[in-house]
C-alpha cells in the first residue's frame, strides 16, 4: 500500500481502494480467492500472483469488520485483502480469514466495486468439502454460473455443473446477488477437505481456470511445493476453519430438503 490512493470508496463499512491508475483490458476477469474450505481459492490466487508476476494495485480494508491487522511487507503496510493484476486479470488475495460478521458487507462491496469497475466476469474459486477427499486421487471440479454468459466460459470444457446442494459463505452471497443484478459470476468448485489446506485441489482448479481465462498458469511448481504450502498455510487454515464453523459451513454437507 503506497500513498496517495487514486481511488477509495466505502461500501457499508468496507473500504475498497486502488493505489495506482490501472487500465484492465477487455474481457476483464476478477478472480476471487477468499479463504474457504481447503483454502483452494487462496492457494490458487497466491500461486497466480507468484507465477504470473502480478502487480499489486489496491485492496480491501475494514476497521469495522476486520480484525485490527496491518500486513507488513518490506516494511510497508498492506491491506488484509489485496488486489493484484496482470493484463486483463485481477486477483483478490486474502491475508486473513474472513470474520463471519464481514461476510455480507464484504460480499456486497466486492460486487458493487466489480460493477463500478466494469469487470466482465467475476470468477469465484472455492472448495466443495467432501468427507472422503482423502481417498480421492483427483478431486473433481464443478461449475456454477449466474447467467448464460458466465456459463459459456465453461461450455467447451468437460466439467460437471454443480446442480444440487448448499453454498455457504461469501461466494453464496456474491452468486445470489450476481443472479439478481445480472452480473456474470462463474464459480469453480473443487472437491476438497473442509479443514486441511489442499494445494492439489488448487492445482486442478487452476488447470480449468487457465482455459477459462485463456492465461496459462503453470501448476508444476505448486504441486512440487505442495507440502511446504501446507506447512505455511496451517495457521490461515486454522483461523478459516474457526470462521467457517461460525458461519454454518457445515450446512454444505446437507442436501436441500426439497430435492434430497
Amino acid at each position: 500500500m503506497s500513498y496517495p490512493y487514486y481511488y477509495e470508496e466505502v461500501f457499508d463499512g468496507i473500504t475498497i481502494f486502488e493505489t495506482k491508475i490501472v487500465e484492465i483490458p477487455k474481457p476483464s476477469y476478477m478472480v476471487l480467492g477468499l479463504p474457504d474450505a481447503g483454502l483452494v481459492g487462496s492457494i490458487s490466487v497466491s500461486h497466480m500472483v507468484r507465477t504470473l508476476k502480478m502487480e499489486e494495485f489496491g485492496g480491501i480494508e475494514s476497521y469495522r469488520f476486520f480484525p485490527p491487522v496491518a500486513v507488513i511487507h518490506e516494511g510497508k503496510p498492506h491491506a488484509p485483502i489485496r488486489f493484484f493484476y496482470k493484463d486483463n486479470v485481477v486477483v483478490v488475495v486474502p491475508e486473513i480469514a474472513i470474520p463471519p460478521q464481514a461476510i455480507y458487507p464484504l460480499s456486497l462491496a466486492i460486487l458493487d466495486y466489480a460493477q463500478k469497475r466494469g469487470f466482465d466476469y467475476i470468477i469465484s474459486i472455492t472448495g466443495a468439502p467432501v468427507p472422503n477427499r482423502m481417498n480421492l486421487d483427483k478431486p473433481r471440479i464443478y461449475w456454477l454460473a449466474s447467467n448464460d454468459r458466465a456459463a459459456k466460459l465453461v461450455s467447451e470444457l468437460k466439467i460437471d455443473q454443480f446442480k444440487e446442494g448448499l453454498l455457504v459463505g461469501p461466494y453464496a452471497i456474491i452468486f445470489k446477488e450476481s443472479v439478481k443484478r445480472r452480473v456474470s459470476n462463474l464459480l469453480l468448485l473443487a472437491e476438497t477437505f473442509m479443514e486441511f489446506p489442499d494445494p492439489e485441489a488448487a492445482a486442478k482448479v487452476l488447470e480449468v481456470l487457465s482455459k477459462v481465462i485463456g492465461v496459462k498458469v503453470d501448476v508444476a511448481k505448486l504441486l512440487e511445493e505442495a507440502e511446504l504450502i501446507k506447512i505455511k498455510t496451517r495457521e490461515l487454515m486454522k483461523h478459516t476453519t474457526q470462521s467457517l464453523a461460525r458461519m454454518g459451513k457445515g450446512y454444505e454437507y446437507q442436501m436441500p430438503l426439497l430435492y434430497a
Binding site: 473442509m194 479443514e195 486441511f196 496451517r234 487454515m237
Partner: peptide, 13 residues
C-alpha cells in the same frame, strides 16, 4: 502453532 525451538503443531480433526 509452532514453538521457537523448532516444533510445528499439525492440523488435525
Amino acid at each position: 502453532m509452532w514453538t521457537s525451538d523448532g516444533v510445528l503443531e499439525p492440523l488435525f480433526s
